[in-house]
């Protein structure tokens, strides 16, 4: 192939149901916000690609949402596979969602061993009195995790505050890590994805 392919970096959203993962997904996708949890709007949407430019280097972030699987079941372990980064999301107005992060963190380190992990406090749009999680608590959590967390962010999907900045920084981090990991991917070139479209007679080629 003549064109240089920008490799995609899989970034996954993790955390409790209702903390705003799909809202982050939607902000990332088309910068919109829907207050009621209208799942229909992301129905059939699997992941979203976006290109970032970091010091003249192109990088493509591919953001994945859970599809609501964490609601009553658990997220499949294959959701985590091949992830380069994971964003641990909790809601700043919901202390429980913060306290349950350790379970999600455990899943990430188990199934996505090499992923960079970021902490994201969402719903940073409430009166400060309504916030149940303080900066100090977030810091403490990171310390307890033995520096597994690369960076922390506070975002609001309602206002859009902090979302772009977070992804730009994550893109930065991934470019940095990739630099130090150059060659790692070439080690196993035998694996591949199957992506070809079938025989020419196939009706699906019409579109």
């Amino acid at each position: 192939m003549a064109t240089v392919k920008v490799t995609e970096q899989k970034v996954i959203l993790c955390g409790e149901y209702g903390v705003g993962k799909t809202s982050i997904f939607r902000r990332f996708a088309n910068n919109t916000f829907i207050s009621s949890n209208d799942r229909k709007s992301t129905l059939g949407l699997d992941n979203i690609d976006k290109e970032y430019l970091v010091d003249d280097k192109k990088i493509r972030l591919q953001l994945w949402d859970t599809g609501g699987m964490e609601r009553v079941a658990s997220v499949t372990s294959s959701y985590y596979k091949f992830a380069e980064a994971a964003i641990l999301v909790f809601a700043l107005d919901n202390a429980t969602s913060f306290h349950l992060l350790s379970q999600h963190l455990l899943d990430i380190v188990t199934y996505a061993e090499n992923a960079k992990i970021f902490l994201c406090g969402n719903k940073n749009d409430f009166e400060s009195t309504a916030l149940q999680v303080t900066d100090a608590e977030m810091e403490q959590f990171c310390e307890q995790c033995h520096n597994l967390i690369s960076a922390t962010y506070k975002t609001s999907c309602k206002t859009g505050q902090g979302i772009n900045e977070m992804f730009e920084e994550i893109a930065h981090y991934l470019v940095e890590t990739n630099r130090s990991r150059i060659g790692l991917h070439e080690m196993d070139q035998e694996r591949f994805k199957i992506s070809y479209v079938d025989e020419s007679g196939d009706p699906s080629c019409v579109c």
């Binding site: 129905l43 059939g44 859970t66 609601r71 009553v72 079941a73 294959s78 596979k81 694996r191």
Partner: peptide
Amino acid sequence: YLYPMYGLGELPQGFARLSAIYGGTYMLD
């Protein structure tokens, strides 16, 4: 023959995600 990385268990999980993405509800245990 082809074989998936991480084993055949990845196959049902992939289709489960497809179902969830299209609105399917999951309950384990």
